[in-house]
Simulated assay, not measured.
Amino acid sequence: MTTTKAKDRARELEEALRARGVRITRQRAALIDVLADAEDHPDASELHRRAQAIDASVSLSTVYRTLSVLEQQNVVHRHAFEGAPSRFETADVPHHDHIIDLETGGVIEFHSERIERLQAEIAAELGYEVVRHRLELYCRKKRR
């Protein structure tokens, strides 16, 4: 872990696990470090691979169980993008939407105030207020 932000994330993840009575084992600590450092949207298999680079004894079942608890504690978000395994990111990031590159599987984060305003306007016109939303755009690069 290199940044202060990653260390703060790791501390929050550990606290969420402890709040649920989950012990912080060496294996869970490795996964927490990986999650705290991740700037992409890794799936469970990728998180497992990265955690094993820190501690070879990390099992895939530990990854899944830990992710489940962290998701229940709302400190990790699960993204179920079409046609791909669920991906994860820490919940401390500001709101953003996603573009999923259909050719590479890459996930690009973006934020648009225009889109946010338009969604609020549409909801209001229909007599609603936006509580939360998720926008996923499935795209291909334009050919020149």
Rank of each mutant, 00 (worst) to 15 (best):
E109N: 11
Q72D: 15
I115N: 03
T104C: 11
E125Y: 01
E113M: 02
V76C: 04
F110D: 09
R117C: 10
G106C: 04
Q119R: 02
E103S: 08
H98A: 07
V93K: 13
I122H: 14
Q119N: 14
P85V: 10
K141C: 02
H79A: 07
R87F: 07
H77K: 12
E71I: 15
H111M: 04
H98T: 00
E109L: 08
L102G: 05
L118R: 14
T90G: 06
E89H: 11
E125V: 00
T104I: 12
Y128K: 11
H133M: 03
D97P: 01
Y128L: 04
V130Q: 00
R78T: 10
A120L: 12
I122C: 02
E136K: 00
G106E: 15
F110Y: 12
G83R: 13
R87P: 02
R87E: 10
L135H: 10
H133W: 11
F88W: 15
E116L: 04
C139S: 03
I122P: 03
G106T: 08
H111C: 01
K142M: 11
S86T: 04
E116H: 09
H96R: 03
H96F: 09
V76T: 06
P85C: 14
L118Q: 14
E121F: 12
F81W: 13
E125Q: 10
R78P: 01
H98P: 01
L137W: 11
R87L: 06
E109K: 13
A123H: 01
R134F: 10
G105L: 06
E103A: 13
R134W: 00
H133L: 11
A124K: 15
G105A: 10
I99Y: 12
G105S: 11
E71Q: 14
L126H: 02
A84R: 12
P94V: 11
K141R: 14
P94S: 07
R132H: 04
